[in-house]
Nucleic acid binder design. Structure first.
Length: 422
RNA sequence: GGAGAGGUGUCCGAGUGGCCGAAGGAGCACGAUUGGAAAUCGUGUGUCUGCUGAGAAGUGGAUCGUGGGUUCAAAUCCCACCCUCUCCGCCA
């Protein structure tokens, strides 16, 4: 949620943010509702004040053994009016907050204004894809040849866009997960969490997937749970409705979870292979910090994710997303993309986002400063990394002329010391 | 699914209709003490929010799991729901 003071005192900032993000939201209606709401509140509070004062008098007189009938009658009349107004206020309030939920975060000043991926900025990494001196295959061709992914049977047990890893393929997937977790917990100081992956509505609202991405998630009909679309959800909601002592900050969490996405609206796209699937594995990094250190920690988080790609020796680049390409709740986002030689595309393997206090406001996550002041924390997260695309890149970039895949050195200890998938 | 117990501030915990935003303790902050620290002593200390104010602040309102109800007045009484714990059943 945005800071409501902005709406009242500086609505143009919000208006500009909406423009930059190409969000079509009727801000004037909200401002009007807010004004209406405030005036009702003022009125109600005045009445309640009177009522409370009367009640107090009644109490005092009764204790003195008197029966203040007249006062009680007055108070009753007041109380009835208050009750009615309370109802009106609730209606206006509900309308207002329902509308405010749809206001996205304000982009950070360093974010380029733009429409879509063409307007994203290049930060660092490879400018051009690497060359190969032989005809490269796509990952689905290699995987079938090596019998490490079984597309037909994946479709049989679940449908299209599901992955069935087999044999050394399954082991490679497990190696990636373990490598990422070990890297971030041992080298980068994150605390490992293994959270539940069925999460209730409140959690998805807290991190900002709801209300906007409702149709992109799987929902359990009878229990109302959503299948976790990213570990960001449980990791960020862990501290919902808490006030964290400042000296405990920053908090660093890393978690492996499967992630579930309906990928609604992408039907004809990327149907071959495992680039876009309904269930995938991801190691997610989440940090909670004091707002003043947010952007410094954010750059470190990016570097932590980048390190994983570097150690795997994959060709990558880091892009800064423009206003039009960022998700709803983010104030700034970097994408790490690796090049897949077979598909001849850059694939996003990590999206590193900072939310300022937007998520914290929604999820009510606060901290108490050493001086005793309470304020919302700053949250951020990034994939470190999502496996299917790393898997693609390993197959497509590490393929050899003779049809094998060389295993990066950092993974070999997780693969019984093997140097090749063959 | 059945039976019982419980949900109060940062935490523990008292509180069964008005003098309760809430005893007591811990924690935290500040001060004293100390060469420094621990211990000790003193003082302060919930959160959200309306209005006025440049601000310091002032003055209201709300808040004791959530939502309703009774009452002039609710942490306290009534109803529904949610969550946690214990026991039983069921499943793994």
């Amino acid at each position: 949620m945005i800071d409501l003071k902005l709406l009242k005192d500086d609505p143009d900032v919000v208006r500009q943010a909406l423009l930059d993000r190409h969000e079509n939201i009727d801000l004037d209606k909200m401002i009007k509702l807010d004004k209406q709401r405030r005036s009702i509140i003022t009125e109600i509070q005045e009445l309640k004040h009177q009522r409370n004062a009367l009640s107090e008098k009644v109490g005092k007189l009764k204790r003195e053994g008197k029966e203040p009938q007249e006062l009680m009658k007055q108070a009753k009349e007041l109380a009835e009016r208050v009750k009615e107004l309370d109802k009106t206020q609730k209606e206006v309030d509900d309308k207002f907050f329902e509308a405010v939920k749809w206001i996205p975060n304000i982009p950070h000043g360093s974010v380029p204004v733009g429409q879509g991926s063409d307007d994203n900025g290049f930060i660092r990494g490879l400018k051009k894809p690497p060359d190969f001196d032989f005809d490269v295959l796509t990952h689905w061709e290699i995987a079938e040849a090596l019998d490490i992914l079984d597309f037909k049977r994946a479709a049989k047990v679940s449908g299209s866009r599901f992955i069935l890893y087999k044999g050394i393929g399954a082991k490679l997937e497990r190696a990636l997960i373990n490598f990422f977790l070990d890297l971030h917990t041992v080298q980068h100081g994150y605390t490992e969490i293994m959270p539940p992956v069925l999460n209730p509505t409140d959690c998805l609202y807290g991190t900002g997937q709801l209300p906007k991405l409702e149709s992109d998630m799987y929902k359990c009909r009878d229990d109302g749970f959503y299948l976790c679309p990213t570990a960001e959800v449980p990791l960020t909601n862990m501290h919902r409705d808490e006030i964290i002592p400042e000296k405990q900050l920053p908090l660093y969490y890393a978690a492996y979870t499967p992630c579930f996405r309906r990928e609604a609206g992408s039907y004809g796209k990327d149907v071959r292979g495992i680039k876009r699937v309904h269930q995938f594995n991801k190691v997610e990094l989440v940090k909670y910090t004091v707002p003043a250190h947010g952007y410094e920690e954010f750059e470190k988080l990016l570097a932590d994710a980048e390190q994983a790609v570097k150690l795997l020796g994959l060709p990558y680049r880091i892009m800064l997303l423009c206003t039009g390409d960022m998700t709803f709740a983010a104030a700034k986002t970097y994408d790490i993309e690796i090049y897949a030689a077979g598909m001849k595309e850059w694939l996003e393997v990590s999206s590193v986002s900072i939310y300022d206090q937007y998520q914290a406001r929604r999820a009510n996550i606060r901290y108490r400063s050493t001086k005793g002041k309470v304020d919302y924390v700053c949250t951020m997260n990034g994939s470190g990394l999502a496996t299917p695309r790393v898997f693609i890149a390993l197959l497509e970039n590490n393929q050899t002329k003779d049809g094998r895949i060389s295993i990066p050195q950092v993974l070999q200890s997780y693969m019984d010391g093997k140097e090749y998938v063959e």
